[in-house]
């Protein structure tokens, strides 16, 4: 009951913030900053390895949100902002990485995921990001709730394993086993989809 109430309150808040965007009220940015800066900067920091770059991305995210809402009206505002943040941060990461600067979790996560694609070197097997994304979206639905949440926290929010373990009050190795199994399942799934 309390959970449902919190979720409803969460939604109402988001709806009010979105209404400000639609009214072109600049308080929308302040409210977004107030509510989601922590979440998005945390994600950005995990990707980039430092808060300064994450802050830079966050400013870009606010600008993108301001420019895209309206016409867009995201149903899940938090996820929308996190997605914007991830994409912005990953772009910056690639740029920085080319200049031999690295992020904290990104290199580890890339290493973890490198075996998930069945034939990464096969040019013909390469498909566009949208198609892969769609497959992953479907794959994630097949996971159990706990495994799905752990998978998303790790690979979407780029959260360190230790932090996930702390949040879920479980051992680090248990989180790792869950991720290991999810990655193995993802590989099998992608092979099944002939990626």
């Amino acid at each position: 009951m309390a959970e449902a109430f919190r979720e409803e309150a969460f939604r109402v808040e988001d709806a009010q913030i979105l209404a400000l965007y639609f009214a072109r009220d600049e308080n929308a940015l302040a409210e977004t900053e107030q509510k989601y800066r922590g979440l998005c900067c945390s994600t950005g920091r995990q990707i980039l390895g430092n808060i300064q770059d994450a802050e830079e991305c966050w400013n870009d995210v606010l600008l993108k949100a301001w420019n895209s809402i309206p016409p867009e009206k995201p149903c899940y505002f938090a996820a929308y902002l996190v997605t914007l943040m991830r994409n912005t941060a990953l772009t910056l990461y690639e740029k920085l990485h080319a200049a031999k600067r690295g992020g904290a979790q990104t290199a580890l996560i890339l290493e973890e995921l490198e075996n998930c694609l069945p034939a990464p070197d096969d040019v013909e097997a390469q498909v566009d990001e949208a198609e892969t994304g769609e497959m992953i979206r479907r794959f994630v639905k097949t996971l159990s709730e706990d495994a799905r949440n752990i998978f998303i926290l790790r690979y979407v929010y780029m959260m360190p394993v230790r932090e996930i373990a702390e949040r879920y009050r479980m051992g680090i190795s248990k989180v790792k086993v869950s991720l290991h199994r999810s990655r193995a399942a993802l590989r099998v799934y992608l092979e099944g989809e002939q990626l």
Binding site: S42, A79, T132, I152, L153, Y168
Partner: peptide, 29 residues
């Protein structure tokens, strides 16, 4: 990196659910 980017296409409701399940208080120090 493509795979990592593709993760962004996970259903937003799942992304938010994971956020809330994790406590929903992720913040910078």
């Amino acid at each position: 990196m493509d795979l990592l980017r593709a993760m962004s296409r996970i259903d937003p409701c799942d992304i938010e659910a994971a956020y809330r399940a994790a406590g929903g208080d992720m913040a910078v120090p």
